[in-house]
C-alpha cells in the first residue's frame, strides 16, 4: 500500500523544527528588542493552532464560521476557571478545555446540518455575540466585563513566566497541531470532509455520512480552538471579552483566505503573514499615514486587512500557498513553460 506522504519531500521538516526552536536564540543575538518579537511570534503560534482547526472546518469542509473567536473565548475562560478556581493542573486543563469547546462546536454543528452558506455564517456570528454576552452575564466566575487574571502555565512544577518560556511551550503545541491537522486532512476524515465541500449530494451518494462528518468537523475545529484558547489564557495572564471581538473571527477567516484555503500550510503561512503584518508593519504605517495626511484616528489596521482580503479574493483566490505552488511548478518546467496558466 502506498503511504500517505510518499509523494512528499519530508527531509526539510526536521530542519524546520530545529530552526523554529533556534529562532529565539538567533533573535536574541541579532536585536535587543527580541522580547517584543517573541511576544508577536507567540501570538502567531496561538493563532496558528486555531486557524489550522478553522481551516479543517471552513477550508476542507466548506462550512463557514464567523464565530471562531467565541470558541477561543470559551477555551480561554474554561481553562482559566478550571485552573484558578477549581484547581486542576494546567496540563490536565489543556486536555479538558478543548473537549468542552469541542462539545460547544458539536452543539453549533446541529443547526449546520440543516443550513449552509450564508445562514451558517450568520448563525456562527450570532453564536459569537451570544457567547460574548454570556461571559459578561456569568460574572460570578468570569468577573464580567472587567476581565479575569490568569495564572501562568505550570507543567510538572516548571512555571512558564516570560515570553521566552512561553515561546517553547506554544510552538511545541503549534507543531503538534499542524502535524495533527495535516494527518486529519490526509486521512479518511479529511477526504470525507473535502467530498462534502465539493458536493454534498455526491458525497452522500458515495457513502459519506453527512451529519456525522459535519458534526465531526465542528468538533475537531472546536478542539483546536479550545487548545489555542487554553494556551492564550495562561500565556497572556489576562483575558477579557475585548480580546474576543467579532472582528477577530473575521481576521481568522482573512488568515486562512490569505494563506490559501484547504491547505494546512496555507493556514500557517496566512496566520504568520497577518500577525506579523499586524504587529510589526501596521504601527509604522500608522505613523507614516498620520505624518503625511495629518489625520487623527482611523482604523488603519482594519482598512489594510480589508483591502488585503479583498485583493486576494479577486486576484489570488488560492492564496499565498497557491502562489508558492505556482512558483514551484514554474521553476520545475522552467524553459518549457506552457503559455496557458496551469492552476
Amino acid at each position: 500500500m502506498k503511504g500517505r506522504y510518499e509523494d512528499e519531500n519530508l527531509t526539510w521538516i526536521p530542519l524546520l523544527i530545529v530552526g523554529i526552536f533556534l529562532l529565539p536564540f538567533m533573535l536574541k543575538g541579532i536585536t535587543y528588542s527580541y522580547k517584543y518579537y517573541l511576544f508577536v511570534l507567540n501570538m502567531a503560534g496561538i493563532y496558528i493552532i486555531l486557524t489550522v482547526g478553522l481551516d479543517l472546518l471552513s477550508g476542507y469542509t466548506g462550512l463557514i464560521s464567523l464565530g471562531h473567536s467565541a470558541f477561543l473565548a470559551i477555551g480561554a475562560y474554561t481553562s482559566a476557571i478550571l485552573v484558578d478556581q477549581v484547581g486542576i493542573p494546567f496540563i490536565l486543563s489543556l486536555v479538558i478545555s478543548p473537549l468542552i469547546v469541542g462539545i460547544f462546536g458539536f452543539l453549533i454543528g446541529f443547526p449546520a446540518l440543516r443550513i449552509t452558506g450564508m445562514y451558517l455564517g450568520l448563525t456562527t456570528m450570532g453564536f459569537g455575540f451570544i457567547v460574548k454576552r454570556l461571559i459578561i452575564a456569568l460574572r460570578v466566575w468570569t468577573k464580567g466585563a472587567g476581565g479575569l487574571e490568569v495564572s501562568p502555565p505550570v507543567i510538572f512544577g516548571f512555571t512558564f513566566n516570560s515570553d521566552w518560556d512561553n515561546y517553547f511551550l506554544i510552538f511545541t503545541c503549534a507543531i503538534i497541531a499542524v502535524v495533527v491537522g495535516r494527518r486529519i486532512g490526509k486521512s479518511k476524515i479529511g477526504r470525507a470532509l473535502m467530498a462534502i465541500r465539493d458536493s454534498e449530494q455526491a458525497a452522500e451518494a458515495t457513502g459519506v455520512h453527512l451529519a456525522k462528518y459535519k458534526m465531526l468537523a465542528f468538533f475537531i475545529s472546536g478542539l483546536f480552538a479550545g487548545f489555542a484558547g487554553a494556551l492564550f489564557a495562561h500565556t497572556s495572564h489576562f483575558i477579557s471579552t475585548d480580546h474576543f471581538d467579532i472582528i477577530l473571527s473575521i481576521y481568522f477567516i482573512i488568515m486562512i483566505l490569505v494563506g490559501g484555503v484547504s491547505s494546512i500550510y496555507g493556514a500557517v503561512l496566512g496566520t504568520l503573514f497577518i500577525v506579523l503584518l499586524d504587529y510589526l508593519f501596521v504601527p509604522e504605517l500608522k505613523d507614516l499615514i498620520h505624518g503625511v495626511f495629518n489625520i487623527e484616528g482611523g482604523d488603519i489596521q482594519s482598512l489594510l486587512f480589508g483591502l488585503i482580503m479583498f485583493l486576494f479574493i479577486i486576484f489570488q483566490p488560492t492564496g499565498l500557498y497557491g502562489m508558492w505552488i505556482k512558483m514551484k511548478i514554474y521553476w520545475k518546467l522552467f524553459p518549457f513553460n506552457p503559455k496557458k496558466r496551469l492552476i
Partner: peptide, 15 residues
C-alpha cells in the same frame, strides 16, 4: 463560491 462572496462583502464593510 459563496464563501468568497461573503468574505468580499465583509471586507468591503470593514474598508
Amino acid at each position: 463560491p459563496i464563501f468568497s462572496v461573503i468574505m468580499a462583502t465583509i471586507s468591503l464593510s470593514i474598508i
